[in-house]
Write a protein that binds this DNA or RNA. Structure first.
Length: 300
DNA sequence: AAGACGAAAGTGGTTGA
DNA sequence: TCAACAACTTTCGTCTT
């Protein structure tokens, strides 16, 4: 990986593990999105602590159907002293291994989980989400199963809803439209499942802050950092004018980006912005009108 | 011809009686 | 539980560049 900014050659690159981004500290260019946090989840301040906190063995993973805690019959056909087993016994052990493996993922909830977790991983990969979010999403999914929220619903819709919730919770917003596209579940379905689980599990999800979406739309439209700054400024002023309550956050962000692109002479069409944000032109127009009126902006 | 704009009707969800 | 309501979408016609 490069450690200088391709845009301004600055060497001061910053990791933002919360957003899963690597960006340039000087010009704000996002170099990689969807970076994974590969560090340990603890910190150590000296060697003793490090020794104390490090664990042996694989971590417990909620992403595996059996949480990674398994009993397996090993593959070496030896008895306790290391002598080879007679061939008849070997055949027996072969069958035992086979059935032991099958039985351990055979329960219906476990099979459900196996499907769900692979789907969860697939979607999370597409969205470029870090492991931390995948793990916590997997844990939440398990809680849904325990509470019996899955019955009568598509597994995929629950998985999508859990991911959507976790993204918002962690301030790494992905739009419903994006998740719907990747998971192949209708927005409506995901929304319904999302409301259901956030209510049942008592999750406290903060309202999505529109400005979280701005950098992503800017990047998707290949606009400059100047546009992003301008868009942030617009959002700030709109917030002060109480323009944001009750409005869809993506619409706000999209309108701010569109307006900013016009102001900076890097205009994109309303349709382009709308597609990038997963909303319609009309909504952008409406927000755009409000922005212009309330903030006395004279575009171009 | 493409994009911007706006009106009108429809959709799914929230709210309050 | 139902009706009113706000936000958003879809569709379509008109105007501008």
């Amino acid at each position: 990986m490069e450690d200088t900014c391709p845009d301004c050659k600055n060497r001061n690159l910053t990791h933002d593990y919360e957003k899963g981004e690597l960006f340039c500290g000087a010009c704000g260019l996002v170099i990689t999105e969807g970076m994974m946090d590969e560090g340990p989840e603890w910190r150590a301040f000296n060697a003793d602590q490090r020794r104390e906190r490090a664990r042996g063995g694989a971590p417990i993973s909620y992403m595996r159907p059996n949480k990674g805690l398994v009993t397996e019959i090993d593959q070496y056909n030896r008895d306790i002293r290391g002598a080879r087993l007679p061939s008849k016994k070997q055949a027996q052990f072969y069958r035992m291994r086979k059935w032991h493996k099958r039985a351990s993922i055979a329960g219906s909830t476990e099979r459900n989980l196996a499907v769900a977790l692979s789907e969860l991983n697939r979607i999370a990969s597409y969205l470029g989400l870090p492991d931390s979010i995948r793990e916590s999403a997997a844990l939440t999914y398990r809680r849904c199963v325990d509470k019996g929220l899955i019955k009568g619903r598509l597994i995929e819709s629950i998985v999508a809803a859990v991911l959507y919730a976790k993204c918002r919770e962690c301030g790494v917003p992905r739009t419903l439209a994006e998740i719907a596209e990747i998971s192949g579940v209708k927005k409506k379905e995901i929304g319904r499942a999302y409301r259901n689980i956030s209510h049942e599990l008592d999750m406290k999800i903060p309202l999505a802050d529109p400005s979280y979406y701005v950098p992503r739309f800017v990047a998707a439209l290949k606009l400059s950092g100047k546009v992003q700054e301008t868009a942030f400024g617009l959002m700030k002023r709109a917030t002060r004018k109480r323009l944001i309550s009750g409005r869809g956050p993506t619409g706000l962000a999209a309108a701010a980006v569109y307006t900013a692109s016009v102001m900076c002479n890097e205009q994109r069409t309303q349709k382009e912005v709308a597609d990038a944000a997963g909303i319609t032109e009309v909504t952008i127009r409406n927000r755009y009108k409000e922005l212009k009126r309330e903030l006395n902006i004279d575009a171009e």
